[in-house]
Design a protein around this nucleic acid. Structure first.
Lengths: 212, 212
DNA sequence: CACATAATTACACTGAATATCAATATATAC
DNA sequence: GTATATATTGATATTCAGTGTAATTATGTG
């Protein structure tokens, strides 16, 4: 997380930031699908290849923290106290992310534009679904490990699927709540309310497995 | 479903079938991503534009029954007896589809190749996720209607998300069961076992809503 | 047969993504 | 400080999916 001292690395970061900022602005202004990579390269004053150098796919200019997100999930389940069941652990994670003002659960005017940009583009929605699928895979593996089972345990798959569906709905609903009341606190409350309520249900659904 | 008598319509169907068959064969032989639309057009002896005429996207040559699938879900929930809760209705639908040998729940050597082709291609997996998202949307709207609520009712979204996750896991698990034992009946039993078990959990999770 | 309509195709174009290779900037060894 | 190695960049060309347009061919109808 620290800024590298050597010139090469700093230049790299600056170039990356420059492209990212230009792209973000253009996407917000005109929509993801109506901005070409050529335009981004020109606006950022770099070569077209340089853009693809930093962001292998155009979508990566929007979602550039997905590995970080997966790591948050892995860590939460790895550092779990043995007394706390995995499903409960993820509920606690939701509360912690909210308490820590994590950017993953930011429901504000700023994030609203981000969400709008995504919703307006089939390509970005597809990428969001792919990221969810990767998250589900991470949760599946982590759960199976917690429960001492195979990484293809059906119960782990089911639990992960139900959990991801829950978080997704909570996330969407929190953003909707913010749009209605323009109140971040209200949105956070909505997020946690859905997580908490659904967790009770999920515990019932997964009773008899090592995950609850 | 009946074959049209006029020459034009028959030719249309034949052309479509021809393209579809050629494409299916090529995809199975060499993988979706290693077959170009040009090759399909040449092999099917039609113009490139004709291919796109029948299948707007390359993926549509693989998934050409998704609207049909959505309609099955809509119909099941629409023709529901008022005494049967929506979530229970979908459990019954699963049993009916299995009993009727519906192609949607075919776990055999034939469908195995189909699944392999999809799993081998990021593009096709993305399309499968998009179709799931569309199904979730259909279920959300149908549930909300059943429960006399808004189409953006959080409970409906949550229930639909949980249901789709359940069906997806059941589907994947049934295919895995077939791969293990090469027994269609065993795979069908695995499918229904997951649906039945998860339904109990989902009823607990959605208690207090109009959907259970 | 003549006319209208639908289907097919050729052609040209856009835009994402990849590959190659030369030019340039930076780091490291001496 | 100079030389060499390496990383970064950029110019150029190519592949492939997908779209638009207009011309051509096939089919249905009076």
């Amino acid at each position: 997380m620290s800024i590298p001292s050597d010139l090469r690395s700093r230049k790299r970061l600056a170039t990356r930031e420059g492209i990212s900022n230009v792209a973000t602005r253009l996407f917000a202004e005109r929509g993801f699908d109506h901005v070409t990579v050529d335009e981004i390269a020109i606006a950022a004053d770099v070569g077209r290849k340089t853009v693809f150098n930093y962001f292998p796919r155009k979508e990566d200019m929007v979602f550039d923290r997905d590995e970080e997100g997966r790591e948050v999930l892995r860590e939460a389940l790895r550092q779990r106290d043995a007394k706390v069941a995995p499903i409960e652990m993820l509920r606690l994670l939701a509360h912690r992310l909210i308490a820590e003002q994590s950017p993953y659960v930011d429901f504000s005017s700023r994030s609203e534009g981000f969400i709008e940009t995504i919703q307006a583009s089939e390509t970005l929605k597809a990428r969001a679904r792919a990221i969810r699928a990767e998250l589900a895979q991470v949760v599946t593996v982590a759960l199976a490990e917690c429960g001492g089972r195979d990484p293809d345990d059906p119960d782990a798959h089911l639990a992960a699927g139900l959990l991801l569906a829950t978080w997704t709905v909570a996330f969407i609903e929190a953003h909707r709540a913010f749009r209605r009341g323009r109140d971040t606190e209200e949105a956070k409350a909505a997020f946690l309310a859905i997580i908490d309520k659904a967790t009770i249900g999920l515990k019932a659904a997964m009773a008899g497995t090592p995950y609850v």
